[in-house]
Amino acid sequence: MTSNKRIEPWLFVLPALLVFLFTVIVPIIWSFTYSLYEWNGIGDKRFIGIDNYTRMLTDNVFITSFKNNLIFTGLGTVVQIVIGMTMAVILTSITKFRNFIKVIYFIPCVISSMAISQIFSKMLSINPEGVVNATLGAVGLDSLKAAFLSDPNLTLIIVTLVDAYKFCAIYMVIYYAAFLAISNDIIEASVIDGCNWWQQYIYMRFPLIKGIFFITVVMLVSGTLKGFDVPYILTNGGPGASSELVSTYMYKVAFNSVNYGYGSAIAVFLVIECLLIVTLIRKLISKVDVEA
């Protein structure tokens, strides 16, 4: 294994590594430095040590946003996997209009978050009446009509679902590609052995795309942990802090309250949180892998 000690591989990696260092690692270190200061952008910086971090522990809004974020991540991940997988299975099972349906399913992905959020905010609006409330009224369910985006008990679930709606087709495409990659020989063999459609999926297809599946879980969790655009545009974290996520709160602290120090501290927290949770998931996955 002499290849490990050679310098050439490092030379090839170097350009990418440098870009990565300057665009990723340096900003993180930078954020961490800011997080030790109190700074409003124009005045002088004041070193305050870890005060910004201890403040997080007592900051109610931060704690709420953290809890909200866990719900956003948990629910969002499950919904996107289930819907993505269902759509992929449907696509694999049909033969006619496959491409057409694939495109239809994928449309939400290519619409910008801004547009999606605006569409939903108009649809869910009560005053002027949006599509959802109008439909509820038309079918006689007047009692269910509500200002959905102003109801603090619903906003978090709504933003989670809208975010999931936007991104689930990406996972559909990934699963669909994975299903296609399974060799036909295996499937045919299973058919000869008397496998029905359901058993094909349970015993053959799902286990065969397990690796891809785990990757999507990691993607989803890290993606939703830093979820920002839909909650920010649709409800702006409100009403109150009912749909505030860690990243939207970080943004507001840094750029509305102009407390760059505390904002950076929250950003650093987000980095560590993501690393921890993703590491944890990978630990669990490797355990499952070994057992299987």
């Binding site: 990723v24 690692i25 990243s247 993501c274």
Partner: peptide, 20 residues
Amino acid sequence: NKFFAILLCIGMLASIISAC
């Protein structure tokens, strides 16, 4: 794999920070 997953994760995070 683990190393790359972690790097990927950092990369994604950094994109929000730099976007702001």
